[in-house]
Design a binder for these strands. Sequence first.
DNA 1: GGCGATGATTGCAG
DNA 2: CTGCAATCATCGCC
Length: 343
Amino acid sequence: MDDQTRMLASMAGLGGLSQADVSDPDSVRKQQSLGQPPQDIGDILQQIMAITDESLDEAQARKHALNCHRMKPALFSVLCEIKEKTVLSIRGVQEEDPPDPQIMRLDNMLLAEGVSGPEKGGGSAAAAAAAAAAGGSPNDGSIEHSDYRAKLAQIRQIYHSELEKYEQACSEFTNHVMNLLREQSRTRPISPKEIERMVAIIHRKFSSIQMQLKQSTCEAVMILRSRFLDARRKRRNFNKQATEVLNEYFYSHLSNPYPSEEAKEELAKKCAITVSQVSNWFGNKRIRYKKNIGKFQEEANLYAVKTAVDAANVSAQASQANSPATPNSGGYPAPCYTPDGRL
DNA sequence: GGCGATGATTGCAG
DNA sequence: CTGCAATCATCGCC
């Protein structure tokens, strides 16, 4: 016990004590017994600060001297002994870290979105499923789809390159620390278990950084999805032919512009849009027509003429003049040719 | 960029 | 559920 104390005391003042002092522990004891500290703390600090002014060679020489010190093996064994005792208490603190549920959630989502999974298939499958769920129109679906995939691939690429960078940095840092610890284990006792623990700590730190990366990647994917799959955002005007077909039907049924389910299906097929899009169109058209008949007058006349011509063609073929196809009783007011555009 | 047109959504009534 | 009315969000022209 007394020997150990003496040795530790010498160790503590090693930097500041001369070789003679160290080799004579009694001198330290004498100092202590007189109520004086082994060495003034200011001196020690000065010594430490002085190290930064030393050249690397000097430091190396000092280190070498320390390693070759004749007291070194003895001190080392004492430190090992003390370490052995303290490690026992540390061991209890060690916790087995279970897989973080948040990381698992993020991983699952990235996998489902095809960001972290295999290169092909996953992403497009997810996009296809999402597009199907959104009920995208068949005509522009492929364009949207490829655009979505391109963006997703971009996110995927950034994610993987960042992940690789983090992993590389992690392993580099781990190696560096391990080398440092191995180097230090020559002068102080460091068990493999401790190195392992340090590596685990480093990995935990890096995995928390990775989690941030995963989190922001998930956010990016969510934003992408909402941008591309929100039907309102991906609105495309119907093509000219589709609008013409719909308008033709609307103005030729102005008295009752409510297509039956069959008529809607027929129109949907003709226009290459969905039935609900046909319903939307008619809903919008009715309300907008009613709100401002004047504005639609020209259009209405155009289609009235068109249907009349069509009807005339049909009747000419039948060698019979029929009435126009526009019945007009009890429905929306039909347009007329007033110069001020009012009815 | 402003602005009207237009397809989609939402909330409500019947 | 359907239709209406208001509103949103984007398109496309100037």
